[in-house]
Computed example of a mutant assay.
Amino acid sequence: MILTFAVSGYRSLRDIIFPLDRITLITGANGSGKSSLYRSIRLLAEVAQGRAIGSLAAEGGLPSTLWAGPEIVSRAMKRGDVPVQGAVRKGVVSLKLGFADEDYGYAIDLGLPADAGRSFFSMDPEIKCEALWAGEALSRSNEIAGRNGPSVKVLNQNGQRIPVVQNLARFDSMMTHAADPKDGLELLVLRERMRAWRFYDHLRTDREAPARFPKIGTRTPVLSGDGSDLAAALQTILEIGDEQALAEAIDDAFPGASIEVVVNDGYFELLMQQKGLLRPLRTTELSDGTLRYLLLAAALLSPRPAPLIVLNEPETSLHPALLEPLARLIATAAEKTQVIVVSHADPLVSALAAQQDCIHHHLFKELGETQVEHLDPPRWRWPSR
Rank of each mutant, 00 (worst) to 15 (best):
Q371V: 11
V165W: 12
I2C: 09
G289K: 09
D346I: 15
L348K: 02
L246Y: 13
K182D: 10
D226Q: 12
L281C: 02
I17A: 13
A134R: 11
T205K: 04
I340E: 01
P377R: 03
Q235H: 10
E126F: 10
S343D: 00
V310A: 10
A253F: 07
Y10R: 05
R204N: 11
G289D: 10
P210I: 12
K336V: 07
E315L: 08
Q273F: 09
A334K: 01
I250N: 03
G60H: 08
Q273D: 07
W133S: 06
L295K: 05
W382E: 06
A353V: 11
R292D: 12
E71R: 11
E313C: 08
K275H: 14
L112I: 14
S343C: 12
A131M: 13
E130Q: 10
K78W: 01
T218C: 11
L168K: 01
S64H: 14
L300E: 06
A6V: 06
R292G: 03
I330C: 00
D357R: 15
A178N: 00
A331F: 02
I127F: 08
R191E: 10
L20K: 00
F120E: 15
Y38V: 10
R381W: 09
V7M: 00
I259T: 01
F99K: 08
L112V: 11
L322N: 09
V341Y: 10
G135Q: 06
K78P: 01
R39M: 12
A57I: 12
P280E: 01
S40P: 07
F18W: 12
L187P: 00
I162S: 11
R170G: 15
R279P: 10
A334T: 07
R161K: 11
E208M: 15
R193L: 12
D357Q: 13
W133M: 10
L234N: 04
R282S: 13
V262H: 06
F99S: 01
P320Q: 05
A145R: 02
K96V: 02
V372D: 12
A6S: 14
D265V: 15
I250K: 00
L348P: 00
E130L: 06
T316H: 13
E324C: 14
R89T: 05
I26M: 03
C358G: 10
